[in-house]
Structures are given as C-alpha cells and as structure tokens.
C-alpha cells in the first residue's frame, strides 16, 4: 500500500513534526508536537480548520487535542489518495500559519466559599492571599486547547506560574457542574457533574453544556476565555454568557 496513512513513516525521525500515525484502520493521528504549547496547539487548530472546510470523503470527524488531531474515518467510504492529499495540504497550511478565527467567551465566576472549596488551600500552597489568587486567575486570559475528558470540558491554559498547584491527592467523587479548577498550569470547567481531581476555586453559573443545541458545547477549541468575578448573590443573575466575536 502506498497511501501514507497506511504505513509508518520511514522517512521521518522521531522528532520531526508534523507526522501521521494510524490508530487502528479507522483513525489517524496527526501530531504537531509532544508538549502543551500554544504554538503547537495553534497548528493543530489551523490543520483542523483547513480539513473541516473541505472534508475528504470518508473522514467522519476531526478532533483537535493539545498537540495532535485525531481523524475518525469510515473505511468503507474512504479514498486513501484523496485523504493523503488533503492531509498534506492541511499540514502545509497549518505550518504556514493558518489559524481559525478566534471567539472570546467571558464567564462570570463566583470565587471561593461553597462555590470554590479549594480557594483557601490554593492560597496557602502558593503563599498568596485568596484575594490575590482571584485577581491573578481572573486577570489572565486563557486559550481553549481542547475539549475532552467529559461532556464539553475545556482544557484552558496557561495558568500563571504563581498559581500552579498539583491535582488533589484524592479526587472528589462528585464535582458540581460549573465548577472551575486548577491543575498545574491548566484551568478548566466541569460543564456537567463528574468525578474530578482539580483544585476547585470557583464556579460559573453559566451552563456550558446545552444538550439540545448543536454544537452543545459553549467553550470550543481555539476560543479565548476570560473570567470576571461576581459576588455570590449575583449567582442567579449571571446565567447568560457573553460571547464576543
């Protein structure tokens, strides 16, 4: 077989990106790096955008992650030559700097108290006051690198170094929907109730997962996300998100 997606990459070394690797016969991984990095993720998102504009036959979905894109394929309808050509074009465009348009999502957050049970612990681990943690966290704008783990969970980066704390030693069995947490240099929001080990410092009243909408996911890969603190008594009044073009 000559189709590139059908064999390993004899010409590439371990460190040359982008590279194409099979995951079974009905998925292909296109890797742009091996670390969490805004530039690597930018290439992934650019690649996904170019591919999604004219999806080759047999490509069911293109899934961006931190450092790679997963293409889900339908082998019976696949045209391998067409896929290879589309991969080359999209990889070329991504490396050349094509990026998707960026949206900005501004989310109200109630920090601390019952909404952010780990705020005080994060403050003591980082040597900051809770107010400083809030100022630092809400004063940074974040990029959504990918959505995964559970329904609509956005992985956001990059958290300021001063706020980086490891995951909880014992994950919680139940994290309420809307909870916002920190794990290392990442921050994220649980759109639906789930088990989880991130340090919860606040919660947004905005519904990030809308089952009846398409897409059901409010925060999407490539979005810029900003948080603004609201007092606990504003909880019921801040349910509408702000999405800026």
């Amino acid at each position: 077989m000559t189709a590139r997606t059908g064999r390993s990459e004899p010409g590439s070394t371990a460190d040359s990106y982008p590279r194409v690797r099979p995951q079974g016969d009905d998925a292909v991984v296109v890797e742009f790096g091996d670390r969490i990095d805004p530039d690597v993720n930018g290439r992934v998102l650019g690649f996904c955008r170019v591919l999604a504009e004219a999806p080759p036959r047999g490509v069911v979905e293109v899934i961006p992650t931190f450092r790679s894109a997963l293409l889900r394929l339908d082998p019976p309808s696949l045209d391998e030559a067409q896929l290879d050509a589309a991969l080359d074009r999209a990889m070329g465009a991504a490396v050349a700097g094509v990026r998707p348009p960026r949206r900005t999502v501004r989310l109200p957050v109630v920090y601390g108290g019952q909404f952010g049970p780990d705020l005080d612990a994060v403050a003591s681990k980082t040597g900051l006051t809770p107010a400083e943690v809030i100022t630092l966290h809400s004063g940074t704008s974040y990029d959504c690198y990918m959505v995964g783990f559970t329904l609509g969970f956005p992985y956001l980066g990059t958290v300021p170094e001063a706020l980086a704390v490891p995951r909880l030693a014992t994950p919680r069995v139940r994290v309420p929907a809307g909870s916002m947490g920190i794990a290392g240099r990442q921050t994220g929001i649980y759109p639906v109730e789930a088990p989880g080990g991130w340090n919860l410092i606040g919660r947004t009243p905005v519904n990030l997962w809308r089952m009846a909408e398409d897409p059901p996911c409010l925060v999407r890969p490539g979005d810029r996300v900003e948080f603004f603190p609201v007092p606990p008594d504003a909880w019921d009044h801040s349910r509408e998100e702000l999405v800026l073009p």
Binding site: Q23, V29, R35, Y155
Partner: peptide, 11 residues
Amino acid sequence: DVVSDGVIPGA
C-alpha cells in the same frame, strides 16, 4: 504518560 490526545474504542 503522554500529553492527552484523542482515543477511539479499540485502542
């Protein structure tokens, strides 16, 4: 550990 990436059933 690898940096999280996409998986499919069967992996």
